[in-house]
Design a binder for these strands. Structure first.
Length: 448
RNA sequence: GGAGAGGUGGCCGAGUGGUCGAUGGCGACAGUCUUGAAAACUGUUAAUCCCGCAAGGGGUUCGUGGGUUCGAAUCCCACCCUCUCCGCCA
């Protein structure tokens, strides 16, 4: 949701943002509806005020004839009022549908572009190939003196990933992680949770099934319905599916950001540093034929997501944006995985996002960087929808700013982990920082 | 799934057709008293929308949506949610 005063005074800003974000919405048409709605409101309210005033003096009336006359008048007014109220309800629905499609306006530093091909690289990191592997990040992408296997081949030969059986059980884009593959994923998640604990984040295991309001509140709906799994019940094979009207989250951002929905927080409690660890479910509708190989684009994965609620101040949220971006980079650096950070261009941004960085990690089998993290600044776009406020210094209530960023998402991150840590003999070395989470184990080898 | 009870302001809780946005208590805030604090006392204290530069005026909101009525927190219907008991079960 956006500041309506701003839409009314500067509609051109929103029309431009619509164009940049490929949102088909005529802002001037919205303003026409907005004006109609306000006019209808004024009329309806005038009639309601009259009815209330007459109602108030009704019990004091003694004269029977006069009373009957007024009842007759009020009955007529009531019928007229009912019509006006119905018209207003219809206008409200139209207004709301349009209003929910108004975009957040990208910040001035966001590059203009039509899609992800026009994202702009802002920095690269790679470990030194010095003996200790540490360094300032000015290294190059490590090279190998043997032929690399991709994660699918590695996973198969080590018996830690089973895609065919995943597909057999659950359809395309499904998989099993198995044995040390399953353990490696949990090691990555636990390492990340501990990292964020040190950074002052509170961990959440949130609901994976949420109601419609949470999906609207975080601005996935309306618009993203096709991307979410709706939970339904089929009571028999021949009967249609009944919807429970709950939805599987595509990210714990949905649950964790909604956590304080409808609340007014104390300034002293901000910023809130939260992280959700959850399974994430994505239908990936409309991506048929895209990234079909391996574990890159699948229907279900696990993710540790950072969520920030902070003061309504662009400077503060810019600082928080840097902080959660850095937290994620630190995880990749600890894993010694080469990555780059890009400024996401306007055409590749979500409806509510004001600024967004992606972190892309080097994936040898794809011979390029692949998106592994997504860091977004929303300002008050989500908090207006979720109604999350705080009491500012001056005593007024303001909407918080919200932000979020991936900290680790698996199994996508297993692609670079397995591929970069493979050895000539077909084994995979376990990244040093993960070994404490795997009982000190150093390598994944073929099961004997 | 079966049976019952209930959803009222930040919280507790009264209110069964009109002057009720709603008694009272708690909490919070301000003040009096006090060296300070506590106690006591006094006062203030819902959200949201519309009109207005403002002062201010008006609408809506007693789980949600519909209905009855001149008028609904209060009556009727549907739905949602919570609690208790039973059943089933991790």
């Amino acid at each position: 949701m956006v500041d309506l005063d701003l839409v009314r005074s500067s509609p051109e800003l929103f029309q431009a943002a619509c164009k940049e974000k490929n949102i088909k919405l005529d802002v001037s048409a919205f303003l026409v509806v907005d004006e109609k709605r306000r006019t209808a409101m004024a009329e309806t309210q005038k009639m309601q005020a009259e009815r209330n005033a007459v109602s108030k003096k009704m019990p004091t009336l003694k004269d029977k004839a006069e009373k009957e006359k007024i009842v007759k008048e009020m009955k007529a007014l009531g019928e007229k009022l009912k019509e006006h109220e119905a018209a207003l309800t219809a206008l409200d629905a139209e207004w709301l549908a349009m209003q929910l499609r108004l975009p957040g306006i990208p910040l001035a530093n966001v590059p203009k572009g039509k899609d992800d091909s026009e994202n702009v690289e802002i920095r690269k990191w790679a470990p030194h190939q010095s003996p200790d592997g540490s360094g300032s990040g000015q290294g190059t992408i490590p090279t190998f003196d043997f032929e690399l296997k991709d994660h699918v081949a590695l996973g198969e030969s080590l018996d830690i990933i089973d895609i065919p059986r995943g597909v057999k059980i659950a359809g395309a884009r499904s998989y099993f992680l198995k044995g040390d593959g399953a353990r490696l994923e949990f090691a990555l998640l636990m390492f990340t949770l501990d990292h964020l604990k040190r950074k002052g984040f509170t961990a959440f295991i949130p609901p994976l099934l949420v109601n419609y309001d949470a999906m609207v509140g975080t601005s996935y709906f309306p618009g993203g319905e096709e991307m979410a799994y709706a939970v339904g019940v089929r009571k028999s094979q021949s009967q249609p599916i009944e919807s429970d009207d709950v939805y599987l989250i595509g990210t714990s951002e949905v649950s964790v950001t909604s956590y304080h929905g409808g609340e007014t927080l104390a300034l002293a409690d901000l910023p809130k540093r939260y992280c959700g660890i959850s399974n994430c479910f994505r239908r990936e509708a409309g991506t048929y034929g895209k990234d079909t190989h391996g574990l890159y684009r699948i229907h279900q994965f696990q993710k540790v997501e950072q969520v920030i609620l902070c003061e309504n101040d662009p400077e503060v949220s810019a600082k928080m944006h840097k902080e959660i971006l850095q937290n994620a980079e630190e995880v990749l650096q600890a894993l010694k995985l080469p990555y780059r950070v890009v400024d996401v261009c306007t055409g590749d941004m979500g409806q509510g996002q004001m600024y967004k960085n992606d972190i892309e990690t080097w994936m040898p089998s794809r011979k390029r960087y692949g998106e592994t993290h997504s860091c977004s600044t929303f300002h008050d776009f989500q908090s207006r929808r979720l109604n999350i406020k705080y009491t500012a210094k001056d005593g007024t209530k303001k909407f918080v700013h919200t932000l979020n960023n991936t900290c680790i998402a698996s199994p996508r991150i297993l692609i670079p982990v397995l591929e970069m840590y493979q050895n000539a003999d077909g084994t995979v070395t376990i990244p040093e920082v993960l070994r404490p989470y795997m009982g000190g184990q150093e390598k994944i080898s073929k099961p004997s």
